[in-house]
Design a protein around this nucleic acid. Structure first.
Lengths: 344, 344
DNA sequence: CTACTCACTGCACACGTTAACAATCGCCAC
DNA sequence: GTGGCGATTGTTAACGTGTGCAGTGAGTAG
């Protein structure tokens, strides 16, 4: 029995080779279950390896294989629950596929985003997933520079990237708005995300399209923008509340904005949904535990993360079959208790 | 001007050496700003490097330096907002210190936790941070096996590990409970986390200690357990509501549990805080946007994450000065509107 | 007996970087 | 002229793993 825990340096195949009285290549082959090595020696080698606590060095292996089996994930901030869900899906799939994931927050600072991608480049990640990027324009050049596959998830930025998975913003917004229209609302506000860019535009135009197709007109005094956070959602709602007439319903860019808006309404003593209905977008876990539980458009966040990873892995193994450039997921309207017909 | 984007393989220092007509070691030195190389050649080399889009290979560098400048972070799940905040702090600090972070979810499955740590071992991470581990017992052996530094953050598990940062559970719980006692509550419930282990025990005993020191007795019918999630928080509260007499206040293991509990109360039409006061623990962003805004014990989650990374980096550079084994952070009671005096 | 095949193993190099050591050159003091 | 020194550069060997190629036997067919 070996004493594996004492040596400071990790044991290598050469150490094992010395003990087993074979060359290090035989060890390498044995540990990778190559048919080229005699079963009995292979077994002996594997025994020594496991007793000595041997762990193959992924870094040495990566050097020769030119594949690190590593991917980089860039998020604005992992503290955002939306990104948490997405990354959870990515990591889960990556784990099953044998990839490790580097996580980096860009904080939406272009300078930092650059640093992060450079670091990924040096680490020789096999691929990159970028979620909810707001400064994606910078990527365009970096992309072809690195020529490694990149998959975008809900990229907010205009511009066409080769591979992306995203939610169908327009349709989701349309469904949500139709729900409010069906309830009889005709004075509906919208709280957007001023940094949401394309994503915000698409939801906004879905909203507008729904109004137009029912002949309901838009009310400029009930249109406001936050930045996708609770805090700014609340602030935006407060601005709307200062103006008259008040809307009877508000559709929000995302759940966080909606939760913030609801908090502003509560603070003013305005009842939801009796006086104002609220609709969000995302279906964060918190949405169903809000009071009242939030009507929203569900994004399959984890699933989208998994799919992004799947696509990336597909690109890495050269199987482009069954991979479309742009995959759109459908949102699902989840009706809860934050919406009701307006009182006459 | 070079055409960097065409070659499939990344450019190496040897490529640069060939172009600059020097040896690869001179290139290596020049790029690392060694004083050993003539300023003019150094400048020329740096020019070629930048024009060719050269990026040093961290994997090759790691192989010779035996330092990857990489750390592994194990969380139960990154979809948990608490972990999101913590990891955000860790990543931020790591980034500034020149470390990249591998993220892995254990999902509290021992088998998966093992796989994850093995993968970190193969990747030759310089250190590991484990947050909110519920199966930490398994780590004990793995730890010394790997002999790389490990820092625990809010480790739920009994057993003493060398380095950890955690919240002062007992004191936080005591403050929260005292707040309720000060308001005049005498029938106070507790909703715990059955998997919270030590962390739950400490909060529970802080709760009990506060009651005892005021001579208020515990009410078994108002004691329940969830698993730290909204869903189970709601379920636990529903169980309490089936029993009489009802408590006038409930202290919850964490904010998620509290949010779930509030949702259950709302569903039954029970008013907060008029009929039942609710207190949480963590101060997640969602807590201040709940309705009513949640009274809770704030954990400086990001800061704790940063500190854990700082400690780890300290251990890695051998500066043990100013590093205590176990660092405890103080929680801060944040009084919002989910608590009030009981009606007589 | 020879030649050939088969199963297994070792040798040597490659991957991209760092670093210890050697080498070269110009210059200065003796 | 010679020796030494300082500045700059090159040579070489690692780091741990994978792999093409050569080598070594043993067994077998001719």
């Amino acid at each position: 029995m070996l004493r594996p825990h004492t040596s400071s340096k990790p044991v290598s195949i050469k150490d094992i080779a010395r003990i087993a009285n074979v060359s290090h290549s035989t060890v390498s082959r044995a540990l990778r279950n190559s048919p080229l090595v005699h079963p009995s020696t292979a077994e002996q080698i594997r025994k020594i390896a496991s007793e000595s606590g041997y762990r193959a060095s992924a870094v040495a292996r990566s050097l020769v294989n030119r594949r690190t089996h590593t991917i980089g994930v860039v998020v604005t901030t992992i503290a955002d629950p939306f990104n948490g869900e997405v990354v959870s899906g990515i990591e889960d799939k990556a784990n099953h596929l044998g990839y490790s994931v580097f996580l980096a927050n860009s904080k939406s600072e272009p300078e930092r985003e650059l640093r992060v991608v450079h670091s990924f480049e040096e680490r020789r990640v096999d691929g990159i997933i970028v979620t909810s990027s707001r400064v994606g324009a910078h990527y365009a050049d970096l992309l072809e520079r690195m020529n490694i596959p990149v998959v975008f998830l809900n990229n907010h930025n205009p511009g066409n990237f080769a591979y992306s998975v995203s939610i169908d913003d327009g349709n989701g917004a349309r469904e949500a708005t139709n729900h409010l229209l069906d309830l009889g609302h005709t004075r509906i506000g919208y709280i957007g995300d001023e940094f949401g860019l394309r994503s915000n535009e698409n939801r906004l135009s879905g909203f507008r399209g729904a109004l137009r197709s029912r002949g309901v007109k838009e009310h400029a005094e009930a249109m406001e923008s936050g930045d996708g956070s609770c805090a700014e959602g609340a602030a935006a709602m407060e601005r709307i509340l200062k103006r008259t007439p008040l809307p009877t319903a508000v559709f929000c860019y995302n759940d966080q904005t909606a939760l913030g808006a609801m908090s502003a309404l509560h603070a003013r003593g305005i009842r939801i949904p009796e006086e104002i209905s609220v609709v969000g977008f995302d279906d964060l876990p918190a949405a169903s535990y809000a009071s009242p539980p939030l009507t929203t458009v569900r994004q399959p966040m984890e699933q989208m993360g998994r799919r992004a990873m799947e696509i990336l892995a597909g690109l890495l193994s050269g199987e482009t079959a069954g991979i479309e450039g742009v995959e759109k997921f459908d949102g699902e309207l989840i009706v809860r208790r934050s919406t009701a017909s307006p009182k006459k």
